[in-house]
């Protein structure tokens, strides 16, 4: 699975980072950086965190492709 960010929509709420700190983080300017876009289906824990990040984004700026 791949994590896709709609940068136009992202407002830096950072809730996704709390859900998946190993996959993404807000940089010093408050811009979201995807540290890992590809998540292997063999890593169900990471996949669950990725889905959690998508779920928690309040403006629906993240999706799974």
């Amino acid at each position: 699975m791949r994590i896709v960010l709609d940068r136009e929509r992202c407002e830096g709420h950072g809730l996704c980072e709390e859900a998946a700190p190993d996959l993404m983080h807000l940089d010093d300017d408050g811009e979201l950086v995807l540290d890992r876009e590809e998540v292997s289906d063999d890593d169900p824990a990471a996949a669950a965190r990725a889905n959690g990040a998508v779920r928690v984004c309040p403006v629906a700026a993240l999706r799974i492709a």
Binding site: R9, H13, A19, G52, V56, P58, V59, A60
Partner: peptide, 18 residues
């Protein structure tokens, strides 16, 4: 419950939630 609806969700999701 991180996905509660009180702030709405999506394009109009509360702009002042921060």
């Amino acid at each position: 419950p991180v996905d509660h609806l009180a702030f709405g969700y999506g394009p109009h999701g509360c702009a002042g939630q921060g």
